[in-house]
């Protein structure tokens, strides 16, 4: 099922050399997208965090130990999107016009098949209703609907920001967006500017150029999901973490 190529193809490049593992992307994402908070947020198997940090270490003993991070949004797989084809009530779809994989919370029945099918652990189930201590419902943004328990959710590439940017453009009598006009909340907030977001189909966009960087790679590329999230790292041991390799197979760049 090769996707029909649409006009736009939004994607992301995350420079892991710049990434400090600070987690601001995760927090900004949560704040932007009305993520629920459960009573025990340390329950990492059940908390929701669309942009999740994975910590990796080079495994070397002290004092040669190094840690690095993979911030992991939804990959918005472009090819045979594993979650989309399995969803029984059509609650998740890829918009071929921009490559964004949607999740419709009010359609979702909570069967969690998509979670099983996603190798990136990018999908999250609402095991609880969100817990909002008194007063905190006031910070919720009307741009993203608040999810009820029992449904699956995931990173939407801040789709509402695309809508926001479009409305702004329309108000200025433009139909097309300029590079950088639509970026995700994590891209915007990253203090190290490690994240670049834009249209991969636009050869002049920053993101398209970075995605062709010699040190650019994607997660689990050999599975063939063609993620639209790229990473850059100058460190071989980090790049080796991105996919499964047979012994002696990995080629340092």
């Amino acid at each position: 099922m090769k996707a029909t190529e649409g006009k736009y193809k939004y994607g992301m490049v995350i420079n892991l050399d710049k990434c400090t593992g600070c987690g601001t992307c995760t927090v900004a994402c949560a704040a932007e997208n009305n993520l629920s908070v459960i009573r025990d947020e340390t329950d990492k198997q059940r908390t929701i965090s669309w942009m999740q940090l994975f910590k990796v270490t080079n495994g070397k003993p002290f004092p040669d130990t190094e840690v690095s991070y993979f911030p992991r949004p939804c990959m918005h797989c472009h090819n045979h999107t594993p979650c989309v084809s399995v969803c029984p009530p059509t609650a998740t779809k890829m918009d071929y016009n921009n490559g964004i994989v949607s999740q419709i919370y009010t359609r979702c029945i909570g069967c969690r098949y998509c979670q099983a099918a996603c190798p990136y652990q990018a999908r999250y189930f609402n095991w609880w209703d969100g817990h909002f201590p008194k007063g905190t419902e006031r910070y919720l943004s009307p741009e993203v609907s608040v999810r009820m328990r029992g449904v699956v959710e995931k990173c939407s590439f801040c789709h509402h920001r695309l809508m926001r940017a479009k409305e702004q453009a329309y108000a200025e009598d433009r139909r097309e967006l300029e590079d950088g006009e639509y970026i995700t909340a994590c891209t915007e907030v990253c203090p190290a500017e490690a994240i670049t977001f834009g249209d991969l189909n636009d050869p002049d966009s920053k993101v398209a150029k970075l995605s062709k960087h010699p040190q650019a790679f994607r997660l689990l590329e050999r599975i063939g999901t063609e993620p639209k999230v790229y990473y850059i790292s100058s460190k071989d041991w980090v790049r080796r973490m991105a996919d499964n390799y047979h012994p002696n197979e990995f080629q340092p760049v």
Partner: peptide, 11 residues
């Protein structure tokens, strides 16, 4: 038709 994609109207 491209505006019939789910996320265009759902949020």
């Amino acid at each position: 038709e491209q505006n019939n994609a789910c996320f265009v109207c759902h949020k």
